[in-house]
Computed example of a mutant assay.
Amino acid sequence: MSGSNILFHIDGRVATITLDRAARHNALTMAMLADVDFALGQIEIARDVRVVVFRSTGSRFFCSGADIGEWGDIDPEEMGSRFIRAGNRVFRRIVELDVPTISVLSGSALGGGLELALSCDFRYASTDAMLGFPEASVGAIPGWMGCQRLSALVGTSRSRELVLLGEPITAARAAEWGVVNQVLPQEQLDERVTEICALLQRQSRASLSVGKRLLRMVESGQPELAHEFAASVCKATPDAAEGVNAFREKRHAEFR
């Protein structure tokens, strides 16, 4: 990478993107967003990848949000056209990846850090992590589609509580609300994520890809058309034939 505090590697079928700026609570800079964008491009052309994991160094913060220090030299027009647009482009690319994505919240996720986590398919948090949108306290708003993605998960009432009050919630409450999938002690977090990665790697790549697109189509309000399309696409793949044959022969499918 370009030295902007992003680590990226692919190990077998698992790609890992790590925020490596613990001294600044892993706050996101424009350079970091650019390097995440580059990593996503590599993942898109890596046919063997089955799951993408977002991690961070340090245990206090997964990500404290956007680096406010970069805002000082940006005029109002550039704030929207450059800084916000760049983040939205990267996070949308995460959402649209054909493979599942996991964010490992080993520390607190605030502001843009929570928006990054919300862009992923799964979120696993440590018991001491806090999640929230504190932007109102600095005269800002969640600019990277956080309001929309949060509302889709928890509804408007709870979204208002996080966005307008600006007070973070505990990981336990986030799990109650459906913001995170599971909360575990720090020492058990990596083990659980490894289990989820192993499970996802055994699935059909075609089914994962089409399933993600299907979910996006359902969310857009066309569920019947989406299911018809998805079923047809899956049936046309070699994976579907192998799945049926394995079921008939009472053996585990070997998806290729």
Rank of each mutant, 00 (worst) to 15 (best):
A198S: 02
G69F: 00
R93P: 04
F122A: 12
T101F: 03
T57L: 00
P168D: 15
M217F: 07
D35K: 04
V210W: 08
Q182N: 08
R158V: 00
I6L: 02
P238I: 05
E224W: 15
P168K: 02
G107E: 10
A117R: 08
Q148G: 10
W144K: 10
R160P: 08
D20T: 01
A236M: 14
P238G: 00
Q203Y: 10
R47M: 13
R256L: 09
R251A: 06
L208Y: 12
G111T: 09
N26L: 02
S108P: 10
G80K: 11
I141W: 11
L215N: 15
R251K: 11
W71M: 13
R158F: 14
F133R: 11
C63P: 08
P168V: 03
D98T: 01
L184F: 07
C234T: 09
L114A: 04
E254I: 10
A240T: 05
S119Q: 12
F83C: 02
Q188G: 04
C197V: 05
R85S: 07
L200R: 14
E78T: 09
K250V: 12
R60H: 13
P134G: 12
M32S: 09
C63I: 00
G211S: 07
G112C: 12
W71D: 04
R89T: 13
E77V: 00
R13A: 14
D20W: 04
V99K: 11
V193W: 03
V99E: 04
L7C: 11
F61W: 00
N88L: 09
A39R: 13
W177F: 06
M217I: 11
A206Y: 15
I17N: 02
T194F: 07
G143E: 01
G132C: 11
L214M: 00
R216Y: 01
S4L: 13
L7G: 06
G111W: 05
D73T: 14
F255G: 00
V36Q: 15
D48I: 01
A66G: 12
R60P: 12
K212Q: 12
G211I: 11
V210P: 07
A174L: 09
E96P: 09
V95Q: 13
L165K: 15
E219W: 15
A66M: 04
L199A: 11
P238T: 01
A236D: 14
V95D: 15
D75A: 03
E96Q: 06
G111L: 05
A246S: 10
A230L: 10
R248Y: 06
E191P: 06
G80R: 10
V244E: 07
D128G: 03
F229A: 15
A39T: 10
A172I: 07
K212G: 14
Q182S: 06
G111S: 14
V179G: 10
A253S: 05
P76W: 07
V51W: 02
P168Y: 02
P185W: 10
R202C: 15
P168H: 06
P238R: 03
G211H: 05
G243V: 05
A231M: 11
G166T: 01
T170S: 15
T101H: 04
S220C: 08
A125L: 10
A66H: 03
G112L: 08
A172C: 12
L164V: 03
F8H: 12
A175L: 08
V138Y: 13
E44N: 05
S4K: 03
E187C: 06
G146M: 13
P223G: 08
C234D: 14
H252Q: 09
